[in-house]
């Protein structure tokens, strides 16, 4: 088992323990979390973070909150007294997530939280009401390569669309994570991409067609840890070589076609059972 932490804690207790500053407070009534995930690498959060958790991170960019949202986290706490940017706070407010900051460094924050005694047996997570999707809908999006300021916006829109259609939260989470990883790949490695989402009561189909340098060796790119990202991109918490493996892990089917110096086509399928 990768992580044995299951507990229900009120966010106000977290705030007390970390002596945290509250930047955004979640307005929903059940302000509690069911676990903690500490990481600065966003693919790691998307791969292993559990829904209902709080993200503890030193990565002070809007990508931290977007990743947390994609992974169905309740909120984010920034360590080492980092002041979140307005963009980060705005995103959190819109999505009903809380944002805290603490003076502690990562180790101190983890230790303080680990000593919380209120471990409770797993509570059944609230399940959103699911209504059946009926019609086929198609939506198109555009991603600009190297536009880190807007990275994550397309997947955020796709997630909102899937939610409004009323799919099962588990499928939405898997689709959101896959879409986000694919979007970040475009931002890091391509000039631009067209994205089309087709959603029906049988499947969710998302296709990314980018113009860019392409993937030389797809088998190699599918290996966890392999990355051609620059130091700058890694500093943003991406480029850990987990993107494509993460998509594969979440999707029911993944097809990749690529031509070097031309571009890459990624097709992701989720089947509705």
């Amino acid at each position: 088992m990768r992580d044995s932490t299951h507990y229900i804690v009120d966010v106000s207790r977290i705030q007390n323990i970390l002596k945290a500053k509250v930047w955004v407070s979640n307005t929903s009534s059940n302000e509690h979390i069911t676990g903690i995930y500490a990481s600065d690498l966003m693919s790691d959060v998307l791969a292993y973070g559990k829904p209902g958790s709080m993200l503890l991170t030193g990565l002070n960019t809007v990508q931290a909150v977007i990743s947390a949202y994609m992974a169905e986290f309740r909120g984010v706490a920034f360590i080492r007294n980092k002041s979140p940017e307005e963009e980060t706070l705005k995103f959190a407010r819109e999505k009903g997530m809380f944002v805290l900051s603490t003076e502690s460094d990562m180790y101190e924050a983890c230790v303080k939280l680990a000593t919380l005694e209120s471990k409770v047996s797993e509570e059944v997570m609230e399940v959103e009401e699911v209504s059946k999707a009926e019609n086929i809908t198609t939506h198109s999006f555009f991603i600009d390569g190297n536009d880190f300021a807007n990275a994550g916006l397309v997947s955020t829109q796709i997630k909102a669309l899937l939610k409004s259609i009323g799919y099962d939260p588990q499928i939405i989470r898997r689709a959101a994570i896959s879409t986000y990883e694919a979007e970040m790949n475009v931002v890091m490695h391509a000039r631009k991409a067209d994205v089309t989402l087709t959603a029906s009561d049988k499947e969710i189909y998302i296709i990314f067609i980018d113009e860019g340098k392409g993937i030389k060796d797809i088998d190699l790119a599918m290996q966890e840890g392999y990355s051609t990202a620059t130091e700058e991109q890694r500093a943003l918490g991406f480029g850990a070589g987990m993107g494509l493996p993460n998509i594969k892990k979440n999707a029911d089917e993944l097809e990749i076609n690529s031509v070097v110096d031309v571009g890459t086509r990624i097709e992701i399928y989720f089947y509705i059972k």
Partner: peptide
């Protein structure tokens, strides 16, 4: 280690 960073922190402490 197979532990997450968070779990490991508790053990080190």
């Amino acid at each position: 280690t197979n532990d997450s960073t968070f779990t490991l922190s508790g053990k080190l402490y």
